Simulated scan of single mutants.
Amino acid sequence: MGRTPISLAAASPQSVRSDPQQKKRRLGSDPEAALFLRLVKQMADAEGITETLKANDQMEWVGRMNSCRDRASETVYHQVIYTVRSHR
């Protein structure tokens, strides 16, 4: 049985970059995406991942942010699966 990836973003990356307000409107209507962004921010804050780090060591910042993003994705993914399965 294959896994179907969860899409947290409906728009293409180009449209998100071009209109930050569109991104906010879209994420406001998607509770999973809002949870994902909140978790990433909380994890980054808790681990001291700052804009200063980004300016001084971009590769370190990217690696640490990717770690936060991956963990937040897994959390949201498991929450969605648990919620769907428990309501069957």
Rank of each mutant, 00 (worst) to 15 (best):
Q21F: 07
R69F: 02
V40L: 08
E32R: 11
R26F: 02
T50E: 06
V62F: 14
T50K: 14
R69A: 05
M59C: 00
R38E: 01
E60M: 12
V62G: 00
T75Y: 13
E51Y: 12
L37K: 06
V40S: 12
C68L: 13
P31A: 08
A44C: 15
V40R: 12
K24N: 05
G63Q: 15
K24P: 00
G63V: 07
A72E: 01
L37I: 04
L53W: 10
L35K: 04
S29Y: 10
Q21V: 08
T52F: 15
W61C: 14
K24F: 10
K54M: 08
W61N: 01
G28D: 06
A46E: 09
T50M: 03
E47C: 06
P31T: 04
L53R: 10
L37S: 14
K54Q: 13
L27M: 08
T75W: 08
A72W: 02
D57I: 14
D45Q: 07
M59I: 11
D57T: 07
Q58C: 05
N66A: 04
M43P: 01
A34V: 05
G28F: 11
D70L: 13
N66Q: 14
A72V: 13
L53V: 07
E60G: 09
V40A: 05
A55G: 09
R26E: 03
W61T: 03
N56C: 14
E60R: 06
T52P: 02
L35W: 07
L39A: 07
G63P: 01
N66I: 09
D70K: 08
C68D: 10
G48F: 12
E60L: 15
Q22W: 10
D30I: 09
K24E: 15
E74H: 10
L37Y: 00
T50Y: 02
R71T: 07
M59G: 01
E32D: 05
N56V: 12
N66W: 08
K23E: 05
G63F: 10
K54W: 01
P31C: 05
L27A: 03
E47M: 11
G48T: 13
V62C: 05
M65L: 14
S67H: 09
E51L: 03
S29W: 04
Q42Y: 09
M43E: 15
T50Q: 04
A55S: 11
L39G: 02
Q22H: 11
R64T: 06
E60T: 14
Q58Y: 12
D45P: 15
D30W: 15
E32M: 02
A33D: 00
D57E: 08
P31M: 03
A46S: 12
L39C: 03
D30V: 04
E60C: 02
T75S: 12
K54G: 00
G28C: 04
S67M: 13
A33E: 04
N66F: 06
K23Y: 00
M65V: 11
V40W: 03
Q21T: 11
K41I: 10
A72Q: 03
W61K: 01
T52A: 03
N66E: 15
D30Y: 05
M59Q: 10
E51F: 03
S73N: 06
T52W: 11
S67T: 05
V40F: 03
L27Y: 03
E51R: 06
T52C: 00
R25G: 00
A72P: 14
A34M: 07
A72I: 05
T52Q: 05
D70W: 06
Q58G: 06
D45F: 09
R64G: 02
A55F: 03
K23D: 01
R71A: 10
L53M: 13
E74N: 15
G63I: 08
T75I: 12
S67P: 01
